[in-house]
Design a protein around this nucleic acid. Structure first.
Lengths: 344, 344
DNA sequence: CTGAAAGCGCTTACAG
DNA sequence: CTGAAAGCGCTTACAG
């Protein structure tokens, strides 16, 4: 049953030709170098034995593993699966394969994971773990691997990145709420050490200023992009800004936390407080009320990241590229007209 | 910047010792064979150059890549991320790394993906794609790789598997509904070519019989584990069984489809129709109404699958093991007391 | 305790 | 058009 794998040498022995001849036939690029008759015999015999070239051996010889490492904080966060799928789909077309690693948020752990990936000779790295100042990226740069960040980017753009246009996303959010009559908005800002948290905060403040609402509205820190942190932040927001009528959550998970907080206080959404999320993660339209949010092309983001890294690998062009995707507003049931509510 | 990778030979050259000596020091297993003084010099120099042993080269030499292929239908399905995380966590402890591939449902595509994985010399394969009669598993067996299936299993247990105890899950579902007074239950059965769909159907029918309800209740085909298919199946169920008061959905996604169907018809859940899901996928408690469902230890399932494959790899014991996890009932808001409703 | 050598399975420049 | 040879970076049985 456990037939041992066939090799070039093995096939060559059976066929009575030199291994390099078999090798040439197996590679479509060099197949034409071999005479018609021999070529057919080789192909036939290879098929008969289910010969599969050992890519590890090829990788060692050529110095290109055709492996791309993808490092995530945590695949369990619903924003990542569509991204990873996009990356994989695009890379597969070009014969690359993904080595995926969930590395959490800790930088020293991430560094360890990167070293593991490098030890396995990945040709490039796609990082979804970038912080605004990221020692791990420095480490990658020193090691000389091709790197691209997805979803987030660092402050000084040393490496190419694909991310969302956060300023636009916040502008869309604020405009939508203002159009509904809201004037007292509070943004639950995500972690400031990552670009999404920072840029959304800046974007929110700019959009507010554009509407002359900087005075009445405000901002509350949300320590993580989680439901639990969202609940806590919402609790705080309601205490600190008793007159608020709308909440701009750092992302969809945070928005669900807001639901938890509001429900616990007997406040209705959107009648008492409107809530808007960010990301439009899968199935968020099934929550109650269906969440109004900013849609990000997660799958597209993965594809673009893969394309960026492929271009880098092929042309070895060192130019840094920053791709920004346009988000769009998705209006559902969690935002409604402003009705000044009586503070309980 | 792009420093070329340091090798054993390179280090040996610098230190004036033989490469194999350096090699012995780098491997903790053989380090003791080298004299204290030389050992220290080697370690120091290796650290200075950030030396990382090339695992591809080691893999080729030893014939063990320490790579495990994981094939999924689609990582975008919320049941998979926790499983994959469990697999990865467990494998990492033992120095293995995951090569993940989304292969869809098509068998020839899956076969192609398996061949890609084998070409990269994976030591083992974890399949989340198993069907009850699976030609891809036959293919793996012929190739002689270690294989384990997760979440699903094939009919004749040729390979080890980790899955849920489906019969128990359905028993819990039916008992819960019966306790609430329901007597007319309809099960929206998932795809019959996969074990989950088949075993849940069988389990449902057995549980029904145990309560003497086989006559009044029934079953409707749901063509896929998706929200859309769930809506269609629910539509059909309501037409075919006008008197039904409770629906046992094939899984949580199907249950959300039921919500869509009920809402479109102006039926309330759970007042008019109770709905119970299966899987307890992430965030399903945030939908409206919060879904009563059967919780499966997804993360645990991944861990167990990894352990099974590790044991197989270490002992090379060919014994087939079938691990079955105990699901539990999670009661939330989508199931309630039976109140005979007037058919609209 | 350390060295010298063989070999894993490819690819590819060099001959003929 | 085909062959012979070198070498990618390790590991490991064999000497000494």
């Amino acid at each position: 049953m456990k037939q041992k794998r066939m090799t070039l040498k093995g096939l060559a022995g059976i066929l009575g030709v030199h291994p390099s001849t078999v090798g040439r036939v197996m590679d479509p690029q060099t197949r034409h170098m071999v005479g018609e008759e021999v070529r057919q015999r080789v192909l036939k015999e290879a098929a008969r034995h289910g010969y599969r070239p050992n890519k590890l051996a090829a990788a060692m010889r050529t110095g290109r593993s055709k492996l791309v490492g993808v490092m995530l904080p945590d695949i369990t966060n619903p924003v990542f699966p569509p991204m990873v799928l996009g990356i994989e789909d695009e890379l597969r077309k070009h014969g690359y394969v993904v080595l995926m690693s969930n590395a959490g948020d800790d930088k020293s752990q991430q560094r360890y994971v990167v070293d593991q990936l490098l030890a396995r000779q990945v040709d490039a790295l796609i990082l979804a773990t970038a912080t605004r100042e990221d020692p791990v990226i420095t480490h990658c740069l020193e090691a000389g691997v091709a790197v691209v960040t997805v979803n987030r980017n660092e402050d000084d753009g040393r490496v190419s990145s694909v991310a969302n246009d956060e300023a636009l996303g916040m502008r869309l959010s604020v405009e939508h709420l203002v159009a509904l009559g809201h004037r007292r908005l509070v943004h639950l800002v995500g972690p400031q050490q990552v670009s999404t948290g920072h840029l959304r905060k800046v974007g929110f403040e700019e959009a507010l200023a554009a509407h002359g609402l900087a005075g009445e509205s405000g901002v509350v820190d949300c320590l993580a992009y989680t439901r639990e942190a969202g609940k806590l932040a919402c609790d705080q927001a309601l205490e600190r800004y008793p007159g608020l009528t709308a909440i701009v959550a750092g992302n969809d998970l945070v928005a669900i936390g807001c639901y938890d907080s509001l429900r616990a206080r007997g406040l209705r959404c959107p009648e008492d407080v409107s809530v808007i999320g960010h990301n439009d993660m899968p199935f968020i339209d099934a929550v109650h009320p269906p969440l109004t949010t900013i849609r990000i092309g997660l799958h597209e983001m993965g594809i673009q990241a893969a394309q960026l890294i492929l271009r880098r690998l092929q042309q070895d062009a060192p130019g840094v590229m920053e791709v920004r995707l346009r988000p769009e507003l998705v209006i559902r049931g969690s935002t409604g007209p402003c009705a000044t509510r009586s503070v309980p």
